[in-house]
Structure formats: structure tokens, C-alpha cells
Design a binder for these strands. Structure first.
Ligand SMILES: [Mn+2]
Ligand SMILES: [Mn+2]
Ligand SMILES: [Mn+2]
Ligand SMILES: [Mn+2]
Lengths: 231, 231
DNA sequence: TATAAAATTTAGTCTTGACTAATTATGAAT
DNA sequence: ATTCATAATTAGTCAAGACTAAATTTTATA
């Protein structure tokens, strides 16, 4: 039997830092600045510096940190961040499918609970749902072992005109935007094209046979798409 | 519309104090001593004193506290404690019925989550379960409005010999004891009588037509019963 | 009623994780 | 190579909640 590396205990605050670093470091784990973290976590930059120093000082360490040059996750830190992300997305799927939450309600509840469910509860939820691949917003749920199936998404606001696209996921942070998207039928799986023409503050899209509709760039930036074949 | 009194925000620690005071103050809310709280919460008495002083100092206040003479809950404190108790028992029922937890696993998970579920999640869980009256151990689940249907229970270890009794609830704090009870068929609803004879360290009980069995006093003290008619 | 044991409180310390104000380093533009 | 704006760090403070050790009550006992 292989040695089970015990994950050091973490607090909600530490979890939130690790998750934020994961989200901000992009597809290939670039360094994240203190300011970016402060903005994302809605915390003062001075507080971030303090936390990063403490985190980097511990052993085993979750992050690598160089003064004035940002942080990035160690393998251990990434493992923990992904675990929290799995909790979050499984919870969203569960609240939505089993407890009748709407897709704009799930995020807030999952954001808190993700830190407090045990491995047992995580497993039972996954089993109950049949190991779902994505959450209600189309976000990929990391596997139990930490693997995250890759997917190349592009913001709809940057998608070329005239090329068919499929909505792969939408941002879950803004409930009002989510309700608006639902109303317009902009949900994962929807096929659409961006009509040709300039797009300074808004863009016109066409979905199936329906009439085209106008979308603000802000909303379009919260919608991620993939090429039709990659559905 | 009646004014919705907003419940002041509480921390997990404060919740645990209020719940412990509720549990220790018995059917009619007697004062609870610092030592009793320290024992129940597995915390030093000095820490308890500090917390009680802070709690009593706040306004609106959750507790009434007199130096050297214990605390008891105010109406507000009782409201909050009962709310947490409802969370706990609903969660136990939910974990057991929906997520296949065994009755010795539910307590630990509920003990953490009870502090972090929203009112919305509480309501959805209750709806999903059809507003259950009791948790998996037979404990009464407080109503949404804070009402707790009364029930006069007696420890099996103190039940008179020869009188038929029904198990109403069992303690949920000791997983090993719970597994033992399940194995012996000692679950809420079970009808039994205590056979006549002395009971110094153990007592003999008879259930239905089966052979009688011997029970340690410790285990019998964790089983609460009611007269047969009061099922 | 005097005294000892048990229960409680006080005083002082620690860790976590936030904040503000002040200071320094970095990087871009002169 | 300076200079300046921006980013980041330091220094000092605060609140929550725990702990230990020492002082005080209360209460039970003789
Ligand atoms: Mn969170
Ligand atoms: Mn999501
Ligand atoms: Mn608790
Ligand atoms: Mn219970």
C-alpha cells in the first residue's frame, strides 16, 4: 500500500487564499501578485502580505513566495486548492439537483460549505450524483485524485464573428447576471454565433432559429465558449 | 406583517456555548455552572468564564450571568440555541436518509455543519424530508418557529422492573455504543421490559418473544424510554 | 463557626487573521 | 541615470477565543 500523505489541516482563510491563487494563476501557474489576491479576496494588501509570509514559512509549505514578486502554489498547495474546488462544484451540483436550488443561489451556499464537509460527505455526494463531470454553470468538477480534464475556453466577448460556438460555462459570481442569462437561454450547451459587425459596447448573437439578440460586453465576458465540435 | 427580529450574528464558538447551556439547563431552565460547561465543551473553566462575561456584556444579550452563580439563556439565546439544535437534527436525518450515513456517523458531521447552513438550506432539507419529527436517534426536531413538542423520557437504567416501555431515543455522542445498540436491536420504537432482580452493574431486559439479554448500566443510561401508551 | 476542598474568577499570554498608517521597492518614463 | 507612480512590505493595533498559573469565592465538613 502506498503511503497516504496526510494533508495538513487548514482554516477557512487559508483555503480561500489557496483557491484564489489557483484561480488567478491561470492555465499555467504563473505567479500571483499580492494586489490581485487582495482584490479577489476583498482584503487589504497588507493583510495578504502577512498571510503569504506565514504560509510560505510553514513546512510543509502550500506556497512559494518571493518578496515583491508574488506567489505560486506548491504541489501540496495545488492539491488542497483543487480539493476545495471539487467540494465547491460538487456542492453546487448537489444543491441544484437534489435540493432545488436555482443556479444563481448555489454559489453563495457552496462558498461557505466547501470548507466544512468531510471527505466522507464529499464521497457520498459524488456517489449520489453519479460522479458528475460539471457543475450547474458548466465548470468542470475535478476528479477525486485531483485531475482536472482540460478544456480550451474563450470568452464570448472575444469569439470571432460568424463562427459557430457552444457555451461551455458561465461565471457563477453574479446572481443577477445568471438570472438574466437563464432568461435569455444562455446556458451551457447552447449553440450560437456572433453576428458580424463592430462590437464596442455590445454584440449581437443568434441562437438556433430564434431572432438574434443584443448582449452587453460585460455579460458576454462572463460567458465562455468552445468550438462546436468540442461541445 | 410582524417585525422580523434579526438574529445577531454568532460564531461557531458562541453557538456551541448556547447549545451547551440549553442542553445542560434541563427541562426547566436552571442555571448552568462554568464547570459543567467546561466539561461539556472540553474547554478550561477559565476560558468559559471569559466567554460568559463577554456574552453577558453584549446587547442584545444571549445569556444572563451572575458571577459565581452560573448562567442561563435569555429568550434570544434560547431561540438561537434551538435553531442550532434544529439544524443539527435535520442534518442528521438528512445525512442518514438521503446520503446513506449510518446512525453512528451522522453526529460528527452534523456537529460541524449545523453552524454553516443557511436558513434557505435548512428549509430545503426540511422540505425534502417532509418535515420530519425526529432524528435518527429519536430526538425531537424543534419546529421552524422554535417550538419543541414535549416528551417525558426516563433513562432505561432507572425504569421500574416489569413495566413495559418503549425506547424513545438514544444518546448520539458515542459511535461505538450506537453500533452496539443497533446490533442488539435497541432502536427507537423497540418495546421491552426490565426483568425483576437487582441491578448493580447490569440489568436484564426482554424484547418481544426473543431471549432476554444483559445490558451494562452505562449502556442502559444512554437509552431513554417512555411508557408504552406514549409511544 | 472555623477550615479545607472545590469551584470560579483574574491576570497575563498566545495564535489567527484582519486593519491603518508609514515606509520601501519596482518598473516605466523621462 | 533620475524621477515618479504604483505595488508591496513593515510596524503597530485589534478582536476572538483558547491556555496556564495564581488569587478568590463558595460550600461542605468538622
Ligand atoms: Mn470560501
Ligand atoms: Mn460554479
Ligand atoms: Mn458544533
Ligand atoms: Mn441525534
Amino acid at each position: 500500500m502506498t503511503t497516504k500523505h496526510a494533508m495538513p489541516a487548514t482554516t477557512e482563510a487559508v483555503d480561500d487564499y489557496l483557491k484564489a491563487i489557483l484561480e488567478l494563476s491561470g492555465p499555467e501557474d504563473q505567479r500571483v501578485t499580492s494586489n490581485a489576491l487582495a482584490g479577489h479576496l476583498e482584503i487589504r494588501a497588507a493583510s495578504v502580505t502577512g498571510m503569504l509570509q506565514k504560509l510560505a514559512g510553514h513546512t510543509p509549505s502550500f506556497v512559494r513566495y518571493e518578496k515583491h514578486h508574488g506567489v505560486h502554489l506548491t504541489a501540496l498547495g495545488k492539491r488542497r486548492a483543487v480539493e476545495i474546488l471539487r467540494h465547491h462544484r460538487l456542492l453546487e451540483r448537489f444543491l441544484h439537483d437534489v435540493l432545488d436550488y436555482s443556479w444563481d443561489e448555489v454559489h453563495e451556499e457552496a462558498e461557505r460549505l466547501e470548507h466544512y464537509i468531510s471527505e466522507r460527505l464529499e464521497d457520498r455526494i459524488a456517489a449520489k450524483l453519479g460522479d458528475p463531470a460539471v457543475d450547474p454553470h458548466g465548470h468542470i468538477i475535478p476528479e477525486k485524485d485531483g485531475a482536472i480534464p482540460a478544456r480550451d475556453e474563450v470568452a464570448l466577448s472575444k469569439w470571432p464573428c460568424g463562427v459557430t460556438a457552444v457555451i461551455s460555462s458561465v461565471s457563477d459570481r453574479d446572481p443577477a447576471a445568471l438570472r438574466e442569462m437563464k432568461r435569455l437561454g444562455l446556458v451551457p450547451g447552447t449553440i450560437l454565433t456572433v453576428e458580424t459587425g463592430t462590437r464596442t459596447a455590445s454584440l449581437r448573437i443568434r441562437m438556433g432559429s430564434e431572432a438574434s439578440l443584443r448582449l452587453s460586453c460585460e455579460l458576454a465576458a462572463e460567458i465562455l465558449v468552445v468550438p462546436e465540435s468540442a461541445g
